[in-house]
Design a protein around this nucleic acid. Structure first.
Lengths: 376, 376
DNA sequence: GCGCATTCTGAAAGCGCTTTCTGCTACCGT
DNA sequence: ACGGTAGCAGAAAGCGCTTTCAGAATGCGC
């Protein structure tokens, strides 16, 4: 019946619980406890819920004056939409999950940087989980992320070669993916048929081996992490195979296994020394281990590269600042992080994509031609 | 996209018809698109929604056989509760927000490690945001986290001493806190009345200054980050004041400002050299800058600590592996991360708590008694 | 055997939002 | 002038869960 009133009639319609005494100052701020809802905004703007929603989302054209009222109301009330309600209503969330072993490891930190950067570009929030290398915890996190209806789950870091783990991981991941969840992994392959960013560990390690061989080394030792990690298998395998091609063998007692950490590297190098270091060149499977090894060598008065050459893998940013700067196989970590993120939110392909990132051998000063004791 | 669920009313119909109890228990694994809901579980267990919910939450005693049926159904369907729906219904979420400048900075990485560890203990998920030192982005993230109804928001890293920023930050934080959101910060104080973990930057820097003075240095230079950061003000202030107490001044041209990064440190040190380095001791306001500085000195053939001593601040893990190992002021970064997390989820106090963490000067090998050119 | 307290179950009302669907007004062509 | 169409506002139906609330079933005392 009514024309749209050109003038504003008394504000506040049948407000149920609006604060009485609508004095001069715009008193709205409920003192505590409850959030401002879209309903509040709509009421204050004297429009329907639907209209308020439309204005705020720009879904549909809304008459200019209404639009303005809504916007004003929203800002006056400092309205923040409830992302959970939105996620529920839209059946999709604004968050992606990132699972890695340990954020404070420079390798993961660099990748996480790439991921968060890429996520920011898409207006996504990153939920970060560190498993501290506990497979069970990894599965738990996937469950949580699944519950959060994360738009995608990113698994960063080597998978475990373990049947039980693969099974329970699959039990979480399968239903997640079946329901439309996206999964992408960095650096793992076995048993997971998902989009993958794959550093060429095997080839990189092989290339490194050849380079080291080219320097004249014939006597190697390797500092490795847990053998259940696919990365270990690949890097160690690639290295060993390339050596074998040149007729150089890598006896088992030259491979020292420790945890994939700085301290692990330190311990492994120390163990090597204890066994009576004869190798002229040591390959630490990750830069982080190499850092520890370098310190161990220094501590024990073993000159690098004078007495022994040392090489790592990953090229985390810090290694160029070491003394001597570390020879390593460079991986574009941050870029890999961006790629895995982008893979995950891209339209799913019929079959899983694999993006390979070759490693580039970068020779720095921890390696030199073998100076002593060449194997006869 | 077709719905293939015969036993499930298609979305958004107004059919009130609950499917009558037709016997045929079969058809579960929905091929695609839609998640398993509690409704599905209840139906399969032939109990009500309420009962299923109660079983899964252990809210109330439920008859043993029903309980068993629900549990079985849930596991057979690989049910994962929708955290958004839970958050909505319970009006509280399982996630906390962590805002830092850059995860890949070892300082933040170490803190993030502590935070994620503590969060895991409480079954919380951490939503991580890197601002890349952009104040506007920081405010945006708070808005997002607010929308997510994050249980708490953790602001890690120095705040900006900037009126406009403080205002817009407050505009987000105030309503959030008023609605029951918890906020805790690490390393900032101005303008935010919230629970705080406070490294004693001023005192730490002062203690460092005194130690350095004690070594015999009288001629200092400082490598600093952006002056709008409170951390810069505190560390620089503390250092300068302690110097002043000993009658040593720190002229402005001895303070080089660069970004708070490794490259910033490198650039700042290079600039110092360009100006004709006369100081016998250089204080880099963060270890990360010190790392860059150390490399710059090495590159330019300046011996540390032979020609110049160098000290940092924070004691990030890597600095003990530098050559020479870096003298610095140690902060228990990981522990601080745990504390700020715990502060945030603890019952809010009537007035904001402040937990102070003193820095401990740890002398390593980048500092020595001044070997040359003593002033005066 | 009956009334009443005691459990436990299921129906239903939200939580805050999006998105039909319906219905209105204004405008168009003829 | 009239039907037809476009454009836009509002009512209401969910999204998947938790949690009252009321009702059914059981047990007890007398």
């Amino acid at each position: 019946m009514g024309e749209h009133r050109p003038d504003r009639p008394s504000r506040r319609t049948r407000t149920k619980t609006t604060t009485p005494g609508d004095g001069a100052p715009e008193d709205d701020a409920s003192p505590t406890g409850t959030h401002v809802t879209l309903q509040d905004v709509a009421r204050r703007a004297e429009v329907s819920l639907a209209t308020a929603s439309r204005v705020l989302n720009g879904t549909t054209q809304v008459r200019a004056d209404l639009k303005e009222r809504v916007l004003a109301a929203a800002s006056e009330l400092a309205y923040a939409p409830n992302a959970h309600a939105q996620a529920l209503a839209r059946a999709s969330s604004q968050a992606i999950g990132l699972i890695c072993h340990d954020v404070s490891d420079p390798y993961f930190a660099a990748i996480a940087r790439g991921v968060t950067r890429a996520a920011a570009e898409h207006g996504l929030l990153v939920m970060l989980a560190s498993t501290f290398r506990d497979p069970a915890r990894e599965v738990d996190y996937v469950a949580m992320l699944r519950a959060q209806r994360a738009r995608a789950i990113l698994l960063i870091g080597s998978g475990f070669e373990d049947r039980a783990w693969e099974r329970s991981m699959g039990a979480e991941l399968d239903p997640y993916m079946r329901a439309g969840g996206r999964v992408a992994v960095l650096s793992r392959h076995r048993s997971l048929r998902v989009d993958t960013v794959q550093p060429e560990n095997r080839e990189g390690a092989a290339a490194l081996a050849r380079t080291l061989l080219g320097l004249g080394h014939r006597d190697f030792a390797v500092l490795t992490g847990p053998r259940t990690l696919t990365t270990v298998a690949d890097r160690l395998g690639g290295f060993r195979d390339a050596l074998a091609e040149a007729g150089v063998s890598l006896p088992d007692d030259r491979v020292v296994e420790e945890s994939f950490t700085r301290d692990g590297g330190y311990a492994a190098a120390t163990e090597l020394i204890r066994r009576g270091l004869t190798a002229t060149c040591v390959f630490a499977l990750t830069d982080v281990m190499a850092i520890g090894a370098l310190s161990a060598f220094r501590y024990h008065g073993v000159d690098v590269p004078g007495q022994v050459s040392l090489a790592g893998f990953d090229d985390i940013p810090i290694v160029r600042d070491l003394v001597p700067p570390l020879t390593t196989v460079a991986l574009p970590l941050e870029e890999m992080g961006e790629r895995v993120m982008n893979l995950a939110i891209r339209e799913p392909a019929r079959r899983s994509r694999v993006e390979r990132f070759p490693g580039e051998v970068v020779l720095r000063a921890t390696t030199a031609t073998p100076a002593r004791r060449r194997p006869g």
